[in-house]
């Protein structure tokens, strides 16, 4: 399991990244954390001719933003995001999901943007980005481009990023339009730390009476890309999230999806556990928000 030969460019700044992408042709590939790319290369399932290393690009690291959005630069380590008070405050769903990503050692190297660009259908970070309707920025020699997450994931590990584009930042909208926010993240996997069979992400905002004013629900592992489940989200709106409503809403999720089987789970298992994970994530989010409502 040794990678095929490649040439290597360590980019010092974003301009250099874009230049290298422009020059490199279709077989060049960006390496960020490399936690997915390197095993693929070791198995020779990926064989870029040139690797452009963006780990030394300072512009691509850091966590910032303002009241309306949390901005995570693409090459920010997952571990840094996990430890960031700003992430916890502004995108608590992401903070929660990060703990499910691989293991501490892979989070020390893996990046937030890398996971999104890699677009694994069961990966947690793309799922959260989709749930929260994150905005993406990509840059190429031709300039910067904003990409809405809803059109980003094209298929199994395929995105709308062009071959000469580098994902530079992810903007997670902060839900501060009123209401008390609660988040839920649930996944079913065979072992802890494995890729999920099915993962569900939920963010809710409740008013002071516990009535749901806003809801976002998405599932991973049930389609070639992560999937927003609008029907479920809509069914929660204006309800006080009683068990029955939540159960019905989760059931809708199972109808929205058409999962496939693999060695770890049948399609039916995915469909059924999708319902369960959505239900549990909603209840988790509700209870978290209600806990906040109860606080003075």
């Amino acid at each position: 399991m040794k990678a095929a030969a490649f040439d290597y460019i360590r980019a010092g700044d974003l301009a250099e990244v874009c230049r290298a992408l422009d020059d490199g042709g279709p077989d060049c590939k960006i390496i960020a954390g490399g936690q997915t790319l390197v095993p693929m290369m070791a198995m020779r399932l990926a064989r870029p001719s040139i690797l452009i290393d963006i780990n030394a690009v300072g512009e691509l690291q850091g966590i910032g933003g303002d009241e309306t959005s949390l901005v995570i630069k693409a090459c920010t380590r997952q571990a840094a995001a996990e430890r960031s008070p700003e992430v916890r405050a502004k995108a608590p769903l992401l903070a929660k999901a990060l703990r499910f990503v691989g293991h501490p050692q892979t989070r020390n190297r893996g990046t937030v943007g890398g996971s999104i660009a890699n677009a694994d259908p069961v990966a947690e970070i793309p799922l959260v980005a989709l749930t929260l309707d994150a905005g993406l920025v990509a840059e190429s020699a031709g300039g910067a481009r904003n990409i809405g997450i809803s059109g980003f994931f094209h298929g199994l590990m395929e995105t709308s990023l062009a071959a000469d584009e580098c994902l530079t930042e992810v903007r997670f909208p902060v839900w501060n339009g009123g209401g008390i926010v609660g988040t839920g993240f649930r996944e079913v996997s065979i072992r802890a730390g494995d890729f999920a069979i099915v993962a569900a992400a939920v963010q809710l905002a409740l008013d002071e009476n516990g009535v749901c004013k806003r809801a976002a629900v998405a599932l991973g592992g049930v389609a070639p890309t992560p999937l927003r489940i609008e029907a479920t989200a809509e069914a929660l709106l204006s309800s006080d999230l009683d068990a029955k409503t939540v159960g019905e809403a989760a059931r809708l999720a199972a109808h929205e999806i058409d999962p496939v089987a693999d060695v770890h789970a049948s399609a039916e298992y995915r469909r059924r556990t999708a319902r369960v994970m959505v239900e549990r994530a909603i209840l988790e989010a509700r209870d978290e928000a209600l806990g906040r409502v109860a606080k003075p």
Binding site: M43, I190, R191, A192, G193, D194, F195, D262, V263, H264
Partner: peptide, 28 residues
């Protein structure tokens, strides 16, 4: 609970890596 060398109907081993053949970790 976890480990299986699973084959598909084409006679291919589906669990030939540590991503698919699941040894228990400390969590299990």
């Amino acid at each position: 609970l976890y480990e299986i060398f699973a084959y598909n109907e084409d006679g291919q081993l589906l669990t030939g890596t540590f991503m698919d053949y699941l040894l228990p970790s400390v969590h299990e």
